[in-house]
Each structure stands twice: as structure tokens, then as C-alpha cells.
Design a protein around this nucleic acid. Structure first.
Lengths: 339, 339
DNA sequence: ATGAAAGCGCTAACAT
DNA sequence: ATGTTAGCGCTTTCAT
């Protein structure tokens, strides 16, 4: 049997209330008894029981983390890194993260994650795009809900987002500063806010530089922004548009697909075509040439979400804060100045 | 406030003890009151409180899942799939999985996962290779410990393993059946049991076929079985050994590296060289040609581990069961008959 | 078959 | 500054 608060109290020669006060380091406690109690705790190797604590305090100490299967199993560790960020942060904050995945095609009749139903969590973090019907169902529960890298258009929740617009501007400016004017944008479904925002940044940067965005240079018809679709989109653009000298891909996966296409078609990167991605994913470095990209601080995104959650829990802070996490230009070898 | 067992009892006109019995579907309960109570539960949308239940039953309903950072963030979703398998299985089993990562270079003085210290888990699943010192520390706690895809040589724990030897045999037999005799084995650190077992299978299959294993065809010096090391190992072998017509790589990552090297060196796959991998990872299909491989049922590995854990918990079953999960040959386009 | 009641380990209000 | 005590919501004897 593990030691309980009683054992500690007995050993330290105080009451259990005093032990409790020490554990929660209440101010009004003499440093003398504090020491005594702390010694007893250490000697007995005592840890407070979570369930007892939770039972009385009406909290669980758990945070739910919801992700679609797709996102969790994505080849590149993007959302898993975000999860890790929350986990790291949770370790200090005395929280546990309950990770669960839902089907990407979650529908009305699918059950909610069990931790919602049996109230095993104090709040829920949702990472990445999830179906709107899930958001609706989640919203009905009186639980703090925080989004990361996605947010519902309909409702107003606290959210941690990548500064995609700025990232789009930075990426495009980099290309412009290297003398490129005919810059293609290769993206996926524009209904995804992140992709749309990166496109907005791209257009803004072009306009700022006095360059008129050319619709023929822009591909946003791919359903999903992955390698294969990057390849296909590049094919479509480059087989008709001969003036393009640079590509801004909406993420690294697509950028890699674009690179494959260009190589297959005999283009040299970056001599013939410059290319910049977005995300900064591990395999970028293994590419030939290594990919210039916009770094998204994934661990930081997750950590920020958990901090936001803890604050919400602590201060019952219900105003829907939005946190924009800045991104960073990482110049490697896939872009080249043509001035 | 959420409804409690009292509310249910009141609404159903019975005592809380009866409600409890219904919840845990005790046999000696009249189907009449059972129905009454179940209706009340449904009407009130009642879910038993975890912490109250845990407090009295001295269980937590949580299972810890430990993984190294490396493994969790591996480019290919291998261990994340195993985790998912446990998570799927846990959903039915009324358990939650607490996932935490440890540093790959975990050392004596690093702290144990918090869920061990504060007893927030009923058992721990360890996936993949972890440092021996962690195993030692873990073993001191009186917690069921189950390994997946790795096991300590020193101690005897229940474990769920891939049938690597059989897989090695199957892979090599496939090559042999295609007429290959000079088959290279490209692996990583032989101290990793999985790799060693695959090598054993390779040798067994060769011997069964009356082929003498040639040491010069075997590479086991790479520290880590990844793409880059696959590339380098292939370089070493193919620059000196001209007779090799087929490669068995100890995993798909290395196989992909080997393919890159072969392409860079002007070899055609599978016309000049056949290659088979191990794992069956998503990106295999995107390769050119798609990779023939041995499929490891990752989800199943995780599910099996959780079932083993639940059994251990239920029956206090302490005998160290070993479960070997079978693998499957997946023939794609990277191997070719040369008969 | 059902109910009464004790108690799991802790927190917090109140008393001293 | 510290102790006493009443629960938190549930399971589990033990009665009935």
C-alpha cells in the first residue's frame, strides 16, 4: 500500500490538514513544521493520490487532445510535434494529456471521445482541421475548448494559430528579393484557412512589390496538400507556363512533390527554378538541394495552447483570445538570386 | 453540476447501492429495477465519476505509454501506429492511455515519467528500444510492465514482438524463389534484437536453400537503420561486390536509401537489382518502383499489448507471456524473377 | 433482491 | 499557525 496523507501526518506529528497545507504550499505555515512535513513526505516517498484530490476539487487534472487519424499519422511529424509541445508543457503544469484520434470523416452519429462523455478532462485542445459537426457537438459541453492551427469560422474560440499571412509575405518577399517576378503559388484546398492565408500573404507581397498576381501561376485545386498533389500541380503549371522562375509551395510536402516533378522534367533547382516551402519539416534537410522554407515552431504551438488552456482554467477566462505564433525564414539551397 | 449516483437513485426510487450494482451489472438484480435505473441514467445523462470510482477501487483506469522522442517523431508513422492500436483497444476497455516521451539518451539522473511517481497509471507499456537504466528504474515499481517491439535481455517481462525471424525467412525465401542467390543484407546495429532476428531469418533461409551466407554481402555496422545509412551501406557493398543481384534491407527506411543509391549509380530496379524491405510503411507505395516488403501489423501490435495488459491487470497474471505477431509478404514492383 | 452505512484520501471551511 | 471535521461520489460488506 502506498503511504497516504495520514501516514505523513503521523510521521511528522501533525494533523492531515497541516500536511495538506504544506503540499499546496499555503502561506500561513511555519517554516519549521513545513520542513518536518517535507521530510516525512520524502522519507515515505509520498505522492498525493490523484483521484482523492480530483474527487474533492472537482477537477481531473487531464486535458483532452483531439486529432484526426490523418493528422496523427501524417508522414511528417507535424501534429505529433504539436502534441509533444503540449505534453512537455503539461509536465510542469501538473496535467496529463489524453490523446485521442477521431476519423477524418467524423459524422453526426459517431460517438464523442469518451473523455468528454465521462468528464475525464478539464478542457479540450483540438489540433488541426476537424469536421464542423464535431465542433458543434463539443461546444455543447461546458468545457473550455482551445484550437490549434485551425479554427471554426462559425464560432469564436480561443485559438493558437501560425502567423500564416506574415509567413506568406516573408516567403514571397524572399523570392522577390532574389529577383524573381514570375512566382507560382502551389497550394491545396483554399477552404483550409492556413492555405488561404498563405495565399493572401503571397498576393500582398506581390502587390507591395508592384507585381500583378497572375492567376495562371496559382494552383489551389488540389484536395489535399501532399506530395503527390504537389507533383501534379507542378506538372499542370509548368507544362503551360514557361516564364515561371520560382515556386512558393503552401507546405513542404507539396514543395517536395514539386521538386520531384522538376527533377523528372530536367529542371535544375535552384539554377532554373527556385522553390520555397512552408512548415520546416525534418526531411527538408535530406533533400537535394535542401529546401528553403518557413519554419513553423510546432512544439511552441502546442506549448502555447496548453498555457492558454491553463490560464483559461485558472481564471475562468472566457474571452476568446487569439495567439499568433510567428514564423521564421530558413534559407537553404533551393532558392537562388537571379539578379 | 453533473448528476451523481444520488440523483440517479432518487429518480429511480432506489438506493445508491442498487444503482452501483446496475452500473457494474451485477447479476443479482431484478430486470425490473435494472430497467428503471437504466432509464434514469439515460434521462439524466449520467456518467459515473472516474475519480470517485478510482478512489475507492484503488485503480486509475490509466495505462502509461512510454516512447523515446526519436521513436515518437520518426518520419514514418511506426510507433505512432502502435500507440494508436493501444488507444483503439483502450476505448472499449475503459482505459485511458497516458502517452509520454523520454529522451533517447535517458540517464540515471533523469526523472521518471510523472505518471509513475504519482501512481496515475495501473500499468505501463513500453514501445521500442529504451535505455536499460530506465527499465531498471521502472522495474522497481510494483507496476505491470509490458514491452512492445523490444525486450530487455536481462529481465523477463511480458512482451509483444514482431515475428522477425519468420519475416526474415519469408523475405529471403521470396528473393530465392525469384532465382536470386547473391543476396545482400543491409541492416543497422545488430544489438537491436529486431535487426538481429531479421538477419538470423536471412541466414536460415539461405542455409535451407543450400546457399552459403557470404559475409561480404552483409552490412550491420550502421548505428541507426535510417535512409542515410541505407544509402551509405549500399555504397559500400555495391562498390566492391559486383555479383549481388538482390538486397534484403532490414527495414523500409534503409531500403529507400538503398534504392536512392542504386538509382544514383545507374542501376535499374528491379531489372538489375531486386530489393525487399521490412515494415511496410506508407511511403513505400509512392516509391518508383513501389517497394516489395514484409508487412508489420502495427495497429495490431499495439492492440495486442493492451489486451495483454488488461489480462495481466485482471488476473494478476504475472507469468511473462511472449506474443509473436505474424508478418506478411507484400509483393510489389521492386523485386523481379531472374530465372 | 435491495438498502444502510462505512470508508477510500484528500481539500477547505471553520474552530481554536 | 495548526487541528477538527464534513463531505466529494463511489464501491462494498453486511443486514434485511
Amino acid at each position: 500500500m502506498n503511504p497516504t496523507i495520514k501516514d505523513v501526518a503521523q510521521k511528522a506529528g501533525v494533523s492531515i490538514a497541516t500536511v495538506s497545507l504544506v503540499i499546496n504550499n499555503h502561506k500561513r505555515i511555519s517554516s519549521d513544521t513545513k520542513k518536518k512535513v517535507q521530510k516525512a513526505i520524502k522519507d515515505l516517498n509520498y505522492y498525493p493520490s490523484r483521484s482523492a484530490r480530483d474527487l474533492v476539487s472537482k477537477k481531473t487534472g487531464n486535458i483532452g487532445f483531439i486529432l484526426t487519424d490523418d493528422h496523427f499519422l501524417r508522414t511528417e511529424p507535424f501534429y505529433t510535434r504539436i502534441f509533444l509541445g503540449t505534453e512537455f508543457e503539461a509536465r510542469d503544469g501538473e496535467y496529463y494529456i489524453l490523446l485521442t484520434t477521431i476519423k477524418s470523416d467524423y459524422s453526426e452519429k459517431d460517438p464523442l471521445p469518451r473523455f468528454i462523455l465521462d468528464r475525464s478532462v478539464d478542457g479540450v485542445i483540438v489540433a488541426g482541421k476537424i469536421p464542423e459537426v464535431l465542433i458543434d457537438k463539443l461546444a455543447k459541453y461546458n468545457l473550455p475548448l482551445i484550437f490549434v492551427d485551425y479554427t471554426s469560422a462559425k464560432e469564436n474560440f480561443p485559438v493558437v494559430l501560425i502567423d500564416n499571412i506574415q509567413g506568406g509575405i516573408t516567403a514571397t518577399n524572399h523570392l522577390i528579393s532574389y529577383g524573381h517576378k514570375n512566382i507560382a503559388f502551389i497550394g491545396g484546398d483554399i477552404n483550409h484557412p492556413s492555405i488561404n492565408e498563405r495565399l493572401i500573404g503571397y498576393k500582398k507581397a506581390l502587390e507591395n512589390a508592384g507585381i500583378n498576381p497572375n492567376k495562371k501561376f496559382i494552383s489551389t485545386t488540389s484536395p489535399y496538400p501532399d506530395r503527390q498533389n504537389g507533383y501534379n500541380s507542378a506538372k499542370k503549371i509548368f507544362s503551360t507556363q514557361k516564364d515561371v522562375t520560382a515556386v512558393f509551395a503552401c507546405n513542404d510536402a507539396m514543395a517536395i512533390g514539386v521538386m520531384h516533378y522538376l527533377k523528372d522534367s530536367g529542371f535544375s533547382i535552384p539554377n532554373d527554378i527556385s522553390i520555397i516551402g512552408f512548415d520546416d519539416v525534418e526531411s527538408d534537410l535530406m533533400l537535394d538541394p535542401p529546401l528553403t522554407t518557413i519554419r513553423v515552431p510546432k512544439i511552441e504551438l502546442g506549448a502555447e495552447a496548453l498555457r492558454l488552456m491553463i490560464n483559461t482554467l485558472k481564471y475562468k477566462n472566457s474571452n476568446a483570445k487569439k495567439i499568433l505564433v510567428p514564423v521564421e525564414l530558413i534559407i537553404r539551397k533551393s532558392t537562388k538570386s537571379i539578379k
